[in-house]
Design a protein around this nucleic acid. Structure first.
Lengths: 216, 216
DNA sequence: GTCTATACTTCGATAGAC
DNA sequence: GTCTATCGAAGTATAGAC
């Protein structure tokens, strides 16, 4: 664990080449799975020699962590911006239903199973993302007049996440029976909840949006 | 695709040793992920020489396919027996919520991403399993007097599957916030549906269970 | 910053002895 | 059925020249 320093030179994190290597790695991971992400194949895809990968990343673990981290941060930022602009249930579902995110998660969780260094990183991200999301869902539900007992925010979120994940997973296998029906069903269910929200606003009930979004 | 015969001798599928090798491979996969499943590590875990793995399996693809197939068949059998005995929603949820199944699926789907031979096998299984399950869910819903428009069987099934998957996936990461709440919620929702079913029986409406439970 | 050269490891697979 | 011997390919990593 207490890694020996190792005097080896390491390239700057700001390097353009480094970014290209990470891009190549990410493409490989998406297209062929994590086992295809090797220093040689990354370099080949980026038109470089494989030793250059080791110049920019001390170990492959470092590379994977970096790969995960930059996408995770981008993801959190994207979600938070989108939610700030439109925190409706419909938008939350749209964001979660993006199959790219689910496929990415899937691959990294499988990876974490045998790269311990990644596991901690992924867990930390998962927790951060979860608490940020659950808050948004909670606000959206309160907005629609859904009581916490009727449907707890965490349950709604796990259902959305789970559904998105299964759909994405099956898509990669080419199994898509019932997917349209399901997406449609969820869309309708959300529309109904949002209609409730509109009713409340018309009848003068103030949105809870204004008062108590404490936590986090 | 049209694999060259290759004159190499291959061991009998009934061999005891072969089963032990498969068991060792399965344990490796569960504990350390698919990348740890190599001929050498399997053999070592089974107290054999690595060449013996190649005696029983022409290629590693063959081994993975066999590994998947025997678990898949066992799984389908177990589900069908359990459902024949108790086809209630509650039991269907219990079966799906078993985290072992979800973890297994996850690893193999990740594997399928770079082992094309496995992909077809997994897709075929997924479709078979899906249609068998959706039929069971449909019967259970009809039994509870839930209309297909109110909640299509495929939607209920994908929700159960997705939820089970997310819970299992997060468990492996050590992220379990809200899991209890969710399991409890689902349990209560199902109990409510099943109460409806009981009401119907008491009021004399015949259960559909009696007429059409055909299937081996 | 990128390359050549190189060391060491692990892997899948085959041939052939016993 | 299991072993020894052996191959070539691919992986991670380091040192040092340019």
């Amino acid at each position: 664990m207490a890694s020996v320093p190792s005097s080896r030179r390491i390239g700057s994190p700001d390097s353009e080449t480094r970014t290209q290597l990470l891009d190549a790695a990410e493409r490989l991971m998406r297209e062929e799975g994590y086992a295809a992400v090797t220093s040689r194949r990354i370099a080949s895809k980026a038109g470089r020699k494989h030793q250059l990968v080791h110049y920019y990343f001390r170990t492959m673990d470092d590379l994977f962590i970096e790969l995960f981290r930059r996408r995770a941060e981008e993801n959190i930022g994207r979600f938070e911006r989108a939610i700030a602009q439109d925190g409706s249930l419909g938008n939350l579902w749209r964001l979660n239903a993006d199959p790219r995110g689910a496929a990415f998660t899937l691959e990294f969780v499988a990876l974490a199973n045998h790269r311990k260094a990644l596991r901690a990183e992924i867990a930390r991200y998962a927790e951060h993302f979860r608490s940020s999301q659950v808050e948004a869902v909670r606000r959206a539900l309160v907005d629609s007049g859904v009581d916490e007992d009727e449907l707890p925010a965490i349950v709604a979120l796990l259902m959305m996440t789970g559904l998105a994940q299964v759909l994405a997973l099956e898509d990669t296998l080419g199994v898509t029976a019932g997917h349209d029906t399901t997406v449609e069903f969820v869309g309708r269910a959300i529309a109904q909840l949002e209609a409730r929200s509109a009713d409340r606003r018309e009848s003068g009930t103030p949105s809870t949006r204004d008062d108590a979004p404490r936590e986090g």
